[in-house]
């Protein structure tokens, strides 16, 4: 541990994999019906992480802005797809993907670039060892917030369409007619992040800090990085959810302020 991290051999990972197989066998024998999913998810973990390992090795060796930008773009599009597929009643005509992707782009990319240039300041600013993990954490959390917010918004509008129209009939502005549903959507998008900040260090040791400590960083520095990342995540998720919920609720109404549930696909 004196300099850096203890080497981990593939056969040592095999021991952990055997434990997963053992768990799968146990659930199979107990007819809990999780064995298949467990094996598939475990296999996916190995393949996906192995691939990303190769990609990152190559990216770190090249360290060219255009390759890092391409990587960031791929990450963004995958996150956009994920946001779309997590919604029960998604907006039709590419709007679910578009609103999700745009709001993540605006918030995650802005916050990541800001943190790299102004706060952390690696040379060059896009140094992949910093840029890629930071962007990954931002996107991962913003994605959760945006997906939860949009899902809650569209589902809420669907379930409460009578209330929304009842308000419109009384002459309320569309903004006022969905105000409480927007508030709910915003809340569901932000709550996981707020909970994570509240529980940090007490209930859970956040993953990034744990990783840095394992890699031999002094805990005091690891804590500073973790606080920075937590704040950035809160800001990114918050602004991302604001943009997504605002654009999404606008899209639920047309220019004559009619509730347009026909713009949502049914489950």
């Amino acid at each position: 541990m004196q300099d850096g991290i203890i080497e981990l051999a593939w056969w040592e990972l095999g021991i952990a994999a055997l434990l997963v197989v053992a768990l799968a066998v146990t659930t199979h024998l107990g007819r809990l019906g999780l064995a298949r999913e467990l094996v598939i998810a475990g296999t996916r973990t190995v393949i996906q992480l192995a691939i990303i390992g190769f990609v990152l090795e190559a990216l770190f060796a090249v360290a060219a802005l255009r390759w890092i930008a391409l990587m960031a773009l791929v990450m963004l599009l995958v996150a956009g797809y994920e946001v779309m597929s997590r919604q029960k009643r998604r907006m039709t005509g590419g709007w679910a993907f578009g609103i999700g992707t745009l709001s993540m782009f605006l918030s995650s990319f802005t916050v990541t670039v800001l943190a790299l240039v102004v706060i952390i300041g690696p040379q060059p600013w896009y140094m992949p060892q910093y840029a890629i993990p930071l962007l990954g954490m931002m996107l991962g959390n913003t994605m959760t917030g945006v997906a939860l917010g949009l899902d809650r918004l569209t589902d809420g509008a669907w379930r409460q369409s009578q209330v929304i129209e009842g308000r419109l009939m009384l002459g309320m502005h569309w903004h006022e007619a969905v105000a409480d549903i927007r508030r709910d959507a915003m809340r569901s998008g932000m709550i996981p992040t707020i909970n994570a900040m509240a529980a940090a260090g007490v209930v859970s040791l956040p993953g990034m800090m744990t990783g840095q400590i394992l890699a031999g960083a002094p805990p005091a520095l690891a804590v500073k990085y973790q606080i920075l990342v937590m704040f950035l995540i809160a800001v990114g998720t918050g602004f991302g959810t604001v943009v997504a919920v605002s654009a999404g609720s606008r899209r639920l109404f047309d220019q004559r302020q009619r509730l347009r549930l026909d713009r949502l696909s049914s489950a």
């Binding site: 419109l168 009939m169 009384l170 002459g171 309320m172 502005h173 569309w174 004559r256 302020q257 009619r258």
Partner: peptide, 10 residues
């Protein structure tokens, strides 16, 4: 505006 119309024609 639609909201102002609906406030008149309810």
């Amino acid at each position: 505006a639609a909201d102002r119309w609906r406030a008149r024609v309810m």
